[in-house]
Design a protein around this nucleic acid. Structure first.
Lengths: 173, 173
DNA sequence: GCCTAGGTTCAAAATTTATTGAAACATCAG
DNA sequence: CTGATGTTTCAATAAATTTTGAACCTAGGC
């Protein structure tokens, strides 16, 4: 079933030939992939996280690539994303060359961080624009209903920005 | 600036020729588009919502299409999406043929509904699978750490499902 | 019934986004 | 320094998503 058509099963460098995901691992991966999809996180990233999540110890680069059957580039980028969002951390044993990865302790914290990183920039960037839109509407003497809507949007935006730092301290605090 | 190169400015059926979005409208649309993007809602849908949001009265199909400069298909599908998620409602004046659209009163409620509709199905569908994954791990005598993770995931899932109906009653209650 | 304004559908085209893999880069043991 | 291992980059490709527009419904006036 697994065609051994790897060109020349080299003796020496012998790619360790990793197993594909087990059914129970696939199931979990599907769950993560779906949830991630809602936030626009790519499949490969969710798969990497899921794999680390069901694995007993930390896994190294080659294991991740081998078991998921995805490219080096994807693994690298996926780990970068997860690292940047503080969703995984590496444990490098002393004297070892390769890094080994595991999920950060709290999935909850990870999710909050992820959301923050997506929503906050949008809110921040929008702030001045929204204020301008409101001012504009007031000047033009727009319908009270519209003014009301735009005011509420502004209030929300402001409050969200105030609350944000409380949810989770900005990376580095 | 606006090249009148519409082939034969037909007298009769005279496309009313709507204005493109004003700068302040564009600004708001950009905001909504960005926020929507986080949840994977397409640009055209966000634009429609934004337009209704800044407009004084309800708008009809042709106005939406004309002002946004998008295709009929997009308007139809966009309105369907917004309708399905209870983010807009139509007011059809008696004796009038066309429907006219406006945003539902509470943007907050709309957002919650939207989230619900994305997250809930995933949670529900995952429930049995997650339980199986956990049982599986226990049988195989997996590492306590992994068991712990999977248990927590299951607990979360269950709690989320219990809480969900409280957040907003299911459409039709 | 027939006609038409008003809207929907859906396959094809355009656009966006993710993945791949080869080449470049980095780091460490020797 | 050198050579090999381990990782990142990024242009090209593949895959997924969105938009378009023409054909197709549907309800209401006549």
């Amino acid at each position: 079933m697994k065609p051994p058509s790897e060109k020349s099963a080299g003796r020496r460098k012998s790619r360790p030939s990793f197993e594909p995901l087990q059914p129970h691992e696939v199931e979990l991966a599907d769950f993560f992939v779906r949830m991630a999809g809602i936030l626009g996180v790519p499949r490969s990233v969710a798969e990497i996280y899921a794999l680390l999540y069901v694995s007993s110890g930390p896994l190294d680069f080659d294991h991740i690539q081998g078991r998921l059957g995805i490219s080096k580039g994807s693994v690298s980028q996926g780990l970068k994303f997860l690292r940047d969002h503080e969703m995984v951390l590496s444990v490098k044993e002393k004297g070892a060359r390769r890094e080994r990865w595991q999920p950060t302790p709290s999935l909850a914290a990870s999710l909050v961080a992820l959301l923050r990183s997506q929503v906050l920039p949008a809110l921040e960037q929008a702030q001045p624009g929204l204020q301008r839109v409101l001012a504009d509407a007031q000047q033009r003497g727009a319908q009270p209903e519209v003014i009301e809507r735009l005011s509420r949007l502004n209030r929300w935006n402001s409050r969200a920005l105030e609350l944000a730092p409380l949810l989770l301290p900005p990376p580095g605090a």
